[in-house]
């Protein structure tokens, strides 16, 4: 956007502002990222690879992948269902429903984890019942998954809802009138229209699922090799003064973030839209 002459600032001022913004962001955002990689590589590649080969680190990586592999599909299906009913129909309470879907974004991660401890922990509402049947939720995989699903709950729904609202329902109605069934309509008409946004929402959901710290920290119990995800493993290494290893694992997660950002930019270009990430 080039403003007309009356609203144009002198070139030195404009460039000064741009350079200032660039400097501030570099110092504030890029430098921390650079610090992670520098610290990780300080003692050479050998230390980095050793940090990954450690059995506890391997277990943490496996657990992180497993938790994401369960949470992301759950939230994808829920997110598509929510976007479908919010975007394609009118019904009383729709605004309330939309607000409730966004709710997990405004809740502290620690509180997101805590609610499941309040339900399923040793002193939780269902704690004694679960204990008598020898079912572990908190301090085990189910708790990690529940906390992760809670935290990543809105991602897919909130990427899809504005797009599907904009697209309306004429195409789907036409398909249905021509005799297509519900699943057929969704697969052949809706899905092609939303595929890039859906992929972008899934990617963001996945990045958050793999990187979540506060919520899983509360429900994990920090059992080495068993209930530590990668972010929790980082904390343990750091607290044990194994800085090189901590930064090595952190670098892996930072790479995931960078890949997600690049993919998101590409997808935005493909779909011609941009969404806000959280």
């Amino acid at each position: 956007m080039t403003p007309g002459p009356a609203a144009r600032d002198p070139a030195p001022l404009r460039w000064g502002v741009a350079i200032l913004a660039f400097l501030l962001l570099t110092v504030f955002l890029a430098l921390p990222l650079a610090a992670v990689f520098t610290e990780a590589l300080r003692r050479g590649w050998g230390t980095v690879l050793d940090a990954y080969a450690d059995p506890d680190a391997m277990a943490a990586i496996r657990l992180t992948l497993l938790v994401a592999a369960i949470s992301v599909p759950v939230n994808t299906i829920g997110g598509i269902a929510a976007a479908w009913c919010v975007a394609k129909y009118d019904f009383p309470g729709k605004r309330l429903l939309t607000a409730l879907i966004e709710l997990p974004f405004s809740v502290s991660p620690v509180i997101s984890g805590m609610v499941f401890v309040l339900l399923f922990g040793a002193q939780g509402w269902f704690g004694p019942w679960l204990q008598s049947r020898d079912i572990q939720i908190v301090f085990a995989l189910p708790g990690l998954v529940l906390a992760t699903v809670f935290v990543t709950f809105p991602f897919v729904a909130r990427t899809l809802i504005p797009l599907m609202q904009e697209q309306g329902r004429a195409e789907e109605e036409a398909a249905a009138t021509l005799g297509a069934g519900g699943w057929q309509t969704f697969r052949l008409v809706t899905l092609p229209n939303i595929k890039w946004a859906l992929l972008s929402g899934v990617l963001l959901c996945n990045a958050r699922a793999m990187g979540e710290f506060g919520a899983v920290s509360v429900v994990s119990g920090h059992i080495r090799g068993e209930t530590n995800t990668m972010p929790l493993h980082i904390e343990i290494l750091y607290n044990e003064y194994q800085f090189a290893a901590a930064f090595a694992v952190a670098a892996l997660l930072a790479l995931l973030a960078l890949v997600t950002l690049v993919a998101k930019t590409v997808l935005e270009r493909l779909s011609g839209r941009r969404e806000m990430v959280h």
Partner: peptide
């Protein structure tokens, strides 16, 4: 600009 959104919080804290 989106980096703080994408970077896991534990990594940001460490960095």
């Amino acid at each position: 600009v989106d980096l703080p959104f994408a970077l896991p919080t534990a990594v940001a804290g460490l960095a």
